[in-house]
Simulated scan of single mutants.
Amino acid sequence: MLREEIWQRLEKVPDPRSPRGRVYPLPCLLAALLCALTAAGHDAVCAAGQWVARASPAELARLRMPVDPWTRRHRRPDESTFRRLLVRLDRDALAAAVLGPAPDTTGPDTPDPPPVPSPPGRTGPALAVDGKTSRGARRPDGSRVHLLGVAAHGDGRLLTQVEVDQKSNETTAFQPLLSGLDLTGVTVTADAMHTVRANLDWLVTAKNAHYLAVVKANQPTLRAQLAALPWTEVPTADSTRGHAHGRDETRTLKAATVAHLDFPHACQAVRIHRWRRQTGQRPGRETVYAITDLTFAQASPAQLAALARQHWHIENKVHHVRDVTFGEDASTTRTGNAPANLATLRSAVINTLRRAGYRYIPAGRRDHTTPTAALDLHGFP
């Protein structure tokens, strides 16, 4: 089940269409899109029309499709109906409806921010912030659709995402992305692009959260300060070895308490040394520096190492799945809000299948190829 009271969630999305000549209620179209994208092989907008065409009258009734007064049969929307809707639909409202918290029907109209789950092996919750470019969605001016999302460490559940404006970059979307989440006590991990003083200071002071941020060449002074620390005198605090996809990797981590870094709230400096050997390639070494406002009492070196590794869950469990399983990178849909809205619906399907216990998303989609199976999965009565 996607959420409790799924119809109430979909009804909160504002309808961008003119009331005149409107045939299909917006919630029933969104429900059909969500269920169609769940079925294996249904990756594009055109597949939604084919999926609805195969639905039985009982399944159309569960989707709340309107009945033609002349034929007494349920109407079936076609591809163009779905396509026009996705182009104009508010992408933030859709993300809040299918990715955000369940509505509170007994309290105030504004729902509480969504809770952030804690990953296994950690005492506190953690989120990863990362961006993704839809490579096939190239617009006439040559730009591509770029989405910035935030996912939970551990299960990789995407909580929300925003589209980055063509004339800006991810750093300007950092605060709007996280502003609607309750981040009290949450650790946010980010790559070097988001190691920005104003954003991380806002994260600690305004959101009562913590950060673990990578430092690279975009912060040359800070990186030089980190590299100059006496790392040879710091003992190795954590070491892990792994083998996957034909690659051997050894990671060692050192952490040192610092008090003189010219960066907001920095308490610990981290050095991660990676040694990799790929089949058929020469071994390589890489040294990465990071900073965090977490003190040693709040996060041990082993926990910092886990945070650094689990940051990539957003890439492995969200972005990679959308590209490989749903063919998102190959999709050429580029008009208006359609690329962002399709990405949101795909992420909602991934979240639901993982919540249903599926470790591998392709297997989950193959188990829900019929309309009835998809409707049951998402909790449509």
Results as ranks from 00 to 15, higher is better:
Arg9Asp: 09
Glu11Ala: 10
Asp15Gln: 08
Pro19Trp: 07
Leu34His: 04
Gly41Trp: 08
Asp43Arg: 13
Arg54Asn: 03
Ala58Lys: 13
Asp68Glu: 10
Thr71Asn: 07
Arg75Asn: 14
Thr81Gly: 01
Leu85Trp: 05
Ala95Asn: 10
Ala97Val: 04
Asp104Phe: 00
Asp109Gln: 12
Pro115Tyr: 07
Val116Phe: 08
Val116Asn: 07
Gly121Phe: 07
Arg135Cys: 10
Arg138Ser: 09
Ser143Lys: 05
Leu147Ala: 13
Ser168Phe: 03
Gln175Val: 15
Leu181Ile: 11
Asp182Arg: 13
Thr187Gly: 12
Ala198Glu: 13
Asn199Gln: 15
Leu203Asn: 04
Asn208Trp: 00
Ala217Phe: 00
Gln219Asp: 03
Ala224Glu: 12
Ala227Lys: 15
Trp231Lys: 05
Ala237Pro: 06
Ser239Phe: 00
His243Asn: 09
Asp248Ser: 10
Thr250Gln: 09
Ala256Ser: 04
Thr257Asn: 05
Ala259Ile: 05
His260Met: 06
Phe263Thr: 01
Ala269Phe: 11
His273Ile: 06
His273Arg: 14
Ala297Ser: 14
Gln310Ala: 03
Val318Cys: 14
Arg322Ile: 09
Thr325Arg: 08
Gly327Glu: 09
Ala340Glu: 15
Ala343Lys: 08
Thr344Ser: 10
Thr352Ile: 12
Arg355Lys: 08
His368Ala: 01
Ala373Phe: 14
Asp376Glu: 05
